[in-house]
Amino acid sequence: MTKVPELKPTRGDALVAAAVLLLAAVCALRFWTPMAADAGAPEVVVAVGGEEVERLPLRGAERRYTNNGYTVHVVVTDSGVRVADADCPTRDCVRTGAISRAGQSIVCLPARITVTLVGGGGGGYDAVAG
């Protein structure tokens, strides 16, 4: 007996791929559907280190948040919100671009800051957190 595994794709592999796809679809349905989209004016919820620090209406505004040694520059417009600049090494939050639908969020892992759009009227965010 050798320790070399099967090297050609098998039917079991297809099952694994299908399971991964299914998991992705379930998560997508759960977290990408707009939550309480018509419950009121959408709001931007900024959380730093897991705690909500500010709620902003979708109206022109700029904020800077500093945590964990990193600063992110958040720009809110009438149509959405984006992270315009960040001094973290990966800048994934900047590359995420603008978000405009309730339920979407921008995450900055190094600074532990999340920017989430909720459908307003409260509740939307709690619905995400389940």
């Binding site: 796809l21 998560c27 995450v107 989430t116």
Partner: peptide, 23 residues
């Protein structure tokens, strides 16, 4: 790990795309 560190469910929104990429 992101859920633990951020204390929020927000990172879960990235999971579907990450899983697709992992295929």
């Amino acid at each position: 790990a992101a859920l633990l560190l951020l204390g929020s469910a927000a990172p879960l929104a990235y999971l579907p795309a990450l899983l697709l990429v992992s295929l």
